[in-house]
Design a protein around this nucleic acid. Structure first.
Lengths: 126, 126
DNA sequence: CTGGATCCAGCTCGATACTG
DNA sequence: CAGTATCGAGCTGGATCCAG
């Protein structure tokens, strides 16, 4: 069972709940927009419109939707400046920054194996 | 631009192609089924039916579909034993094992921040 | 057992319009 | 500028059936 990955050595009573919660969180986080947004925010502070420009191809809707989800899970922090026009700034929390480290790993992996993968695809498609 | 994450310091001529390819690979890989499958295979060798049991909730279709994709990208190796009934075994390639390291990181992250996240959700939902 | 193909209900996502 | 709501086309993915 793959979900056991999430439970580690917690108390038996909490095991089932930890598994299903872990799986749910994993599903939230393991989607390309969430990962790209976290990567885009980085250790900086970006406005909504900056993020939309930064994350290539994301729609207005997907951006808000994922930002809400990430905020709910405590990965990004949302700071509203009550000016007019409104100014909203997003940054990563400690949890977000920690996750970002592993996402960086995925990006490095992609760079590193780009050639392998391209080659593998050519062979497979033939 | 987030996609610059993928291109690193390659030749200018290849930069655009590397970016779009990197993004495409990232989209392939950054989905929950792909990640869970890679995690399930681990450093072992699993049959199709074992994988279906191991990856909780995955359908026949999603499993084959993702396995084909992972094979095409050279992350998993598919070995067919021409017996009857057929026996097909999957294992990770070097690239797959390398990616698995970062996925392990995500799983650890999930375990580590489970409490934070649960708490954050409670606050947010209120 | 593995896996391809088909069908189609349901969801996703982009476009658009509207608010503060 | 940031965000919500709505609508509909199109894709996703589960169920099912067939084949090697």
């Amino acid at each position: 069972m793959v979900t056991k990955q999430f439970s580690g050595s917690v108390e038996d009573a909490d095991l089932r709940r930890a598994d299903s919660l872990g799986r749910e969180i994993f599903s939230d986080v393991a989607n390309k927009w969430a990962l790209l947004i976290i990567e885009a925010v980085g250790d900086g502070t970006l406005r909504f419109s900056e993020l939309r420009d930064e994350v290539e191809g994301i729609s207005h809707k997907m951006l808000t939707q994922n930002l809400r989800m990430l905020e709910r899970n405590g990965l990004v922090e949302r700071e509203v400046h009550p000016t007019v026009p409104p100014r909203v700034e997003y940054s990563l929390t400690e949890a977000g920054l920690a996750l970002r480290v592993t996402i960086d790993g995925m990006c490095n992996w992609t760079r590193q194996y780009l050639g392998h993968i391209e080659e593998s695809r050519r062979r497979f498609d033939a």
